[in-house]
Design a protein around this nucleic acid. Structure first.
Length: 559
RNA sequence: UGGGGCGUAGCCAAGUGGUAAGGCAACGGGUUUUGAUCCCGUGAUUCGCAGGUUCGAAUCCUGCCGCCCCAGCCA
């Protein structure tokens, strides 16, 4: 245990509890409400809850916190399970629901009534709000607050039996209507809802509130450390109050940490749902979404997400982390694991005028420059090739070491070519380049001592595989769209661009994430890709220091 | 102008009385048949601000300022 590094304040508390003997085993829980899809913010909680237990040889429950039927559904339950598994965590046989405890919770509510610390209130929701007071003024007691235990028991039984309509009564904890902590002003424990439950069916018409159900569920499961986000900090006195009143066998401790916010994206389930419902994205798993399913479809490796939250850290300070930090993690993982391939996103034809008409050569290409274990592959080379439009400039700035009229460039794993002639259409657009190749410069022959500044990628026209490639950018133009009044006003209209690309032949049956050299990391789209009709997602671009240089170069030229 | 939290570099983050770790970003330089990767180097006289205690303060005390959360029969 001592060899584990306590990287954050929560781990320090937990390791201390182990060392002091307060606990022999750490038990945590990840308790999402199945009312939406999990997102990048949840990744933090998942990694913490499962991670800290795994590190200490403890256990973690995946608990669906389903106390509010109507918002929850089995679809979301399934998505949550898939996402947690995909992230690399396993709950074993510890999949539970708050609804699994409805019977015990109901019994304990009766105990609270018998103890005289809970009562049935018959005020309307609006009246209760008025009686609650404000942030600066105390509330006042409900006229029903002093009902007898017998009357409360009778009323609660009849609530349970379905005698009353929604909202007619509510069971409340009798605490302190003048508490400076709003959560302690006689919070609701049970409300009436005549609707079926996603797990419990229609066995119930009264449902427990989060504050009541959560701490007790933790206690029932023997949770030692109940980790949650900062907004629950002032719910803790209430969490503890229920435990004090009911004295369950196990006594969990709630500890709060700050949420993780990602710049240029939103992590509010409500707003995320809005994007889906309004068709701004194709679904919860749209590759631009910050949902786990979206990031999975985009091609982000789970290891990158785990590394990202590890680098972010666990603290109580509000975080708004730059997108670049996440992208770096994605590149770090993919850089080691993805094979290299060649593809042209925006094709421009090159004809090698001095290359034999029907000749096809096979070029050997490394699958990974830093790792020979990836082996090599053969690339067909012929007279007509596709190159990237960006790799040619008719009037190039200084330091542009790609192709320009009269200039030379190396074709990756191929020959050095020179641009002899630029062919344009009637509109003056460059449509083809006539080039000549230097037969002495074939890659890997040892005779290619000649150096040129630039190396560009290419695909043989007659061997190319066509593909739809989807290029993604951030969904919002505002660093913190969470705080924007209207999310629509800060949407990035260019968050998706689709191009018709040309791929090297080996990509005809691409299945995993690969690097398209000089472009970025790409993977087939899990929904739309099909044999013979490739649909590929760009996961992330490569770091592009030329983009910055180009800007400077063009500005310099303009002056 | 109630209560609860939080303020260390552009973004994260260590540090808890002994003289400011690390990562990301940025900026230089080197290697490179990916302008990628990799490697090397550059940042805080200062820790929200102002006082105070101390030989010594990011760490302790006082006051102030700023930001976040709470008035669901949501979680």
């Amino acid at each position: 245990m001592n060899d584990i590094e306590a990287r954050d304040f929560i781990r320090k508390i937990i390791y201390d509890d182990l060392e002091s003997g307060k606990h022999d085993e750490i038990v945590t829980r990840f308790p999402p409400e199945p009312n939406g899809y999990l997102h990048i913010g949840h990744v933090m909680a998942i990694c913490l809850d499962f991670g800290v237990a795994a590190e200490t040889g403890g256990r973690t429950f995946l608990r669906l916190d389903d106390t509010n039927p109507g918002k929850e559904s089995p679809e979301f339950v399934q998505a949550i399970k898939d996402d947690v598994h995909w992230l690399g965590f396993d709950w074993g046989d510890r999949l539970t629901h708050a609804s699994d405890y409805f019977d015990r919770l109901h019994e304990s509510a009766i105990t609270l009534i018998e103890k005289g610390v809970a009562y049935v209130d018959s005020l309307t929701a609006e009246e209760i709000r008025e009686y609650r007071g404000t942030l600066t003024e105390p509330g006042k007691n409900s006229p029903y607050r002093d009902r007898s235990v017998e009357e409360n028991l009778d009323l609660f039984r009849r609530m349970y039996e379905g005698e009353f309509g929604d909202g007619k009564h509510v069971l409340r904890a009798k605490i302190d209507m003048a508490s400076p902590n709003m959560n302690m002003r006689d919070p609701a424990i049970y409300r009436i809802r005549h609707i079926p439950h996603q797990n419990a069916g229609d066995n119930w018409c009264i449902y427990p509130m989060y504050d009541y159900a959560h701490g007790l569920s933790d206690a029932y499961e023997g949770i030692t450390h109940s980790l949650c986000t900062l907004e629950f900090e002032d719910h803790r006195p209430l969490y503890d109050w229920f435990l004090d009143q009911l004295e369950p066998e196990h006594r969990p401790r709630q500890i709060e940490f700050s949420r993780l916010n990602l710049a240029y994206t939103i992590t509010s389930k409500r707003k995320l749902k809005g994007l889906v419902d309004e068709g701004i994205v194709s679904g919860w798993d749209d590759p631009r979404m910050p949902t786990i399913s979206g990031m999975r479809r985009r091609g982000y490796p789970p290891a990158a997400l785990r590394e990202f939250v590890k680098r972010a850290g666990v603290t109580k300070k509000d975080k708004l982390i730059e997108m670049g930090a996440l992208e770096t993690c994605v590149r770090d993982v993919l850089g080691d694991t993805a094979a290299r391939r060649m593809a042209v996103l925006r094709p421009l034809k090159v004809v090698l005028t001095n290359y034999p008409e029907d000749q096809v050569e096979s070029m050997e290409a490394m699958n990974h420059p830093g790792n020979p274990d990836f082996g090599t592959r053969e690339l067909p080379f012929s007279r007509e090739l596709w190159i990237e439009q960006d790799d040619f400039m008719e009037e190039a700035p200084r330091k542009f070491f790609r192709l320009k009229p009269g200039g030379e460039v190396r074709l990756r794993f191929g020959y050095i070519i020179r641009c002899d002639e630029v062919i344009k259409d009637d509109g003056g657009n460059v449509v083809e380049l006539r080039c000549s190749y230097d037969p002495e410069t074939r890659s890997g022959t040892g005779t290619s001592d000649r150096k040129v500044k630039g190396t560009i990628h290419w695909v043989s026209c007659q061997h190319a595989v066509d593909a739809e490639v989807r290029l993604y950018d951030r969904l919002f133009n505002e660093a913190n769209p969470n705080t924007a009044d209207d999310a629509h006003s800060v949407l990035n209209p260019a968050s998706l661009e689709i191009v018709n690309a040309k791929l090297e032949p080996s990509l005809a049956d691409l299945a995993e994430a690969v690097q398209f050299e000089r472009l970025g990391y790409f993977c087939p789209d899990s929904q739309d890709d099909a044999a013979g009709a490739r649909v590929i997602n760009r996961i992330v671009t490569l770091r592009d220091s030329w983009a910055k240089l180009e800007k400077q170069a063009l500005q310099g030229q303009a002056r």
